[in-house]
Design a protein around this nucleic acid. Structure first.
Length: 287
DNA sequence: CCTTGTGTTCTCCG
DNA sequence: CCGGAGAACACAAG
């Protein structure tokens, strides 16, 4: 499940790898992921290059050179973006890294080829993700629907408080709500609540000022640390090199039901359903 | 049946 | 009767 740290890892890596490289070919193997508009995507990409790669929440935004259009990529649950410079690096009898597979494979949806013959593969096992072209005005309305972006200059406790103000929803639902806070998904919502020592079922209007501050600080801390470790691989997230994330072993509660709490060392981590999602927490530490 | 991210729909309340 | 909030539901595919 690529969330903010995973998408940000991909964004930073891709900036270094494909920025300003001329796109020479686009292959769309399954039209569903491009909303049934393969010709539109190809038309806007071929002959252009990415002049910048941005992100809002979990959404990647490719800015196209000499074109008033953007390429949006959403990975949803099982999407991957893997960049390959070709088979040359594997020449001389070296075998492929075990985490890597030959590409394209049966999950490859789109292949973008650059002038140096390198390729960007958009793979998606479940095909929930998408690739689409939008105009600047469409991009603006899409961006406007997202809430406060963590780790940006706008990310201040005052701005955070404003998002909470007047709300009575559950902490978990708040953290997952992209129109309030951008980029947090099921894994990091649980890790943040655990770090802040607050139950995911608490209502926002019942939180003290101190507790709210803890949630703000923990959000920044967990997301920053997860980016440093290049994200979490639970199901099938890989970075643009095809490597898994290193934050997985640092998870304290997610997918750890039945294990002893790493902090209080007494209780076991429980799994419940909150806001329709599987939710992990320590019933002793988190109140 | 389950999984999560997101978009839609419904209900409630003031 | 309305607007907004929140929750419930729907959908994707394996």
């Amino acid at each position: 499940m690529p969330e903010l740290p995973e998408v940000e890892t991909i964004r930073q890596d891709l900036r270094r790898k494909i920025l300003h490289k001329k796109i020479t070919d686009v292959q769309i193997l399954h039209t569903k992921v491009v909303g049934g508009k393969p010709a539109l995507v190809s038309k806007h990409l071929i002959g252009k290059n990415f002049s910048e790669i941005g992100r809002v929440g979990k959404l990647l935004i490719g800015e196209l050179s000499n074109d008033h259009a953007y390429l949006l990529i959403h990975l949803k649950m099982t999407g991957q973006l893997v960049y390959r410079i070709g088979d040359k690096i594997f020449a001389g009898g070296h075998s492929l890294n075990k985490m890597q597979t030959e590409l394209p494979d049966k999950h490859t949806q789109v292949i973008i080829t650059f002038a140096d013959d390198s390729k960007l593969f958009f793979n998606d096992q479940r095909r929930f993700g998408y690739v689409r072209i939008v105009r600047p005005d469409e991009l603006e309305s899409i961006k406007a629907a997202y809430g406060l972006e963590p780790l940006t200059p706008a990310w201040t406790f005052e701005a955070f408080q404003k998002q909470v103000q007047g709300r009575k929803t559950l902490l978990k639902a708040f953290l997952l709500n992209q129109s309030l806070i951008a980029g947090i998904g099921n894994i990091y919502a649980d890790e943040i609540a655990y770090d802040a020592k607050i139950s995911p079922t608490r209502r926002l209007n019942k939180l003290t000022h101190q507790e709210l501050k803890k949630i703000f600080v923990s959000s920044e801390k967990i997301l920053t640390k997860a980016i440093t470790f290049r994200g979490t691989t639970f199901n099938n997230y890989v970075d643009s090199d095809g490597n898994t994330g290193n934050f997985t072993s640092h998870l304290k509660v997610y997918e750890r039901a039945g294990e002893h709490c790493k902090r209080c060392l007494r209780a076991t981590i429980k799994k419940i359903r909150v806001a329709g999602r599987g939710t992990y927490f320590c019933p002793t530490c988190q109140t």
